[in-house]
Design a binder for these strands. Structure first.
Lengths: 114, 114
DNA sequence: TTCTATAGTTCAATAATACGGAACTAAGCG
DNA sequence: CGCTTAGTTCCGTATTATTGAACTATAGAA
């Protein structure tokens, strides 16, 4: 990246911000996948794992939104960027919130949605 | 209203839709207030109780978004419209989700947010 | 170091949403 | 019907989102 990545302080994270970041099905899917990937995951892997034909720029924007909402931290690892969910910090700030959202997301996606 | 109000079937309600509807601080506040008002609440009362200088059209739009996301049901009561949260239906579809979101919202608003 | 490939970011133009004033519609009352 | 209250709809403006193209960063090869 040109500029260093900015991550908000956990105390500056807001509920509305989190909900907005997760109000996009793609971003919900990304966070869900990230939680299952302790080693972190980059854009390319994301596109592959979610089976989405998504342009690089779009993926980059989704990650930026997740980052600025305080949901993930990203760091460079050689050529690519690795992101992971700020799970423990978020759990302290808003106990149970993320888990509850993802639980509902899984219920919704585990069956034909209707 | 001109057209009859449309409410989605509970099975058509999505997590992303709910999160989007609640990603606006005003709508989060509305839902929070509605849950404390079993008799329902209309736009004017909402503006008063939330102490927001909000135009009628804006309030109407917020209610429409909450309605279309499946969060509330609205019905006419004489001159005004009364809305209430579809609490039990939502609880069945996405157990704990709404409660968890509002719990976090309350935590955030109970102190200076940082 | 220079070249090349890989991974993301930024820019800019277009598309989709949101905000809010003004005009319109519905319901109740006299 | 005329008046008042409560919301909705229309529509111009403003903000935000999408994405192809160009640019930057890093690692490895020559």
């Amino acid at each position: 990246m040109a500029r260093p990545l900015t991550h908000p302080h956990i105390d500056a994270v807001t509920v509305a911000g989190i909900l907005h970041a997760l109000s996009d099905p793609v971003r919900l899917g990304i966070v869900n996948k990230l939680l299952k990937s302790p080693a972190g995951m980059n854009c390319t892997q994301t596109t592959l794992k979610l089976k989405l034909a998504m342009p690089k720029s779009t993926c980059s924007q989704h990650y930026r939104i997740l980052r600025e909402a305080g949901l993930i931290v990203s760091e460079r690892r050689g050529v690519d960027l690795s992101s992971r969910v700020r799970a423990s910090e978020l759990e302290t700030r808003f106990p149970g919130l993320l888990a509850s959202i993802l639980k509902s997301y899984k219920k919704e996606t585990s069956r034909p949605a209707r």
